[in-house]
């Protein structure tokens, strides 16, 4: 039995403890905002927060999160009416095209901004490595800077 917290819920999972966290989140908990893109930790579509830090859930066995706290894209904003500042910035810049990678991009950015509250372009280049097949990188870069501004201004915290 693996027990953990996901967003606001406590969860017990009694299946194969080797199941990647991603598939527990998607198939068993029906939280489908976290995406499967590669299964080898290359694309970042499956990024969630484990105890507040970004982690690729496709290569993390669920046994590894026993007793820990998971946040998915669905749990990022306190309420649906008030998106997280990173989500707000994504909306302002109208970042998504197909949209598939964006939950992972946003989860990666939220964690990144905790450690780089006023990031340079170089910081972004070094730390944001999620793949976007549509090529929304121009807007992602702008949205990261905008989110940093929003968070510095204390909006939506």
């Amino acid at each position: 039995m693996t027990s953990f917290k996901i967003n606001t819920e406590s969860v017990d999972f009694d299946g194969d403890p080797g199941t990647p966290l991603l598939w527990v989140i998607r198939d068993h908990l029906n939280l489908t905002g976290t995406k499967y893109g590669c299964g080898i930790g290359q694309c970042g579509s499956c990024i969630v927060h484990v105890d507040g830090r970004a982690a690729v859930s496709c290569v993390m066995p669920v046994s590894g999160v026993d007793g820990r706290s998971i946040t998915t894209i669905e749990g990022l904003a306190a309420t649906q009416a008030e998106p997280h500042p990173v989500q707000q910035a994504w909306l302002e810049l109208d970042v998504p095209q197909c949209g598939f990678c964006q939950p992972g991009q946003i989860m990666a950015t939220v964690d990144f901004l905790k450690r780089h509250p006023r990031p340079t372009d170089e910081d972004i280049d070094k730390n944001i490595t999620n793949l976007c097949r549509c090529g929304t990188y121009v807007r992602i870069r702008k949205a990261i800077h905008r989110a940093a501004e929003l968070m510095a201004a204390g909006e939506g915290t």
Partner: peptide
């Protein structure tokens, strides 16, 4: 104009094909 359903996309609510869940569905 902005993408009409961008809010659903950035909050993870958009359902892509891979997100389909139907009654009694197998994988």
């Amino acid at each position: 104009q902005k993408t009409i359903d961008a809010l659903d996309m950035v909050t993870g609510r958009t359902r892509f094909g891979i997100d389909t869940v139907e009654p009694d569905m197998r994988y």
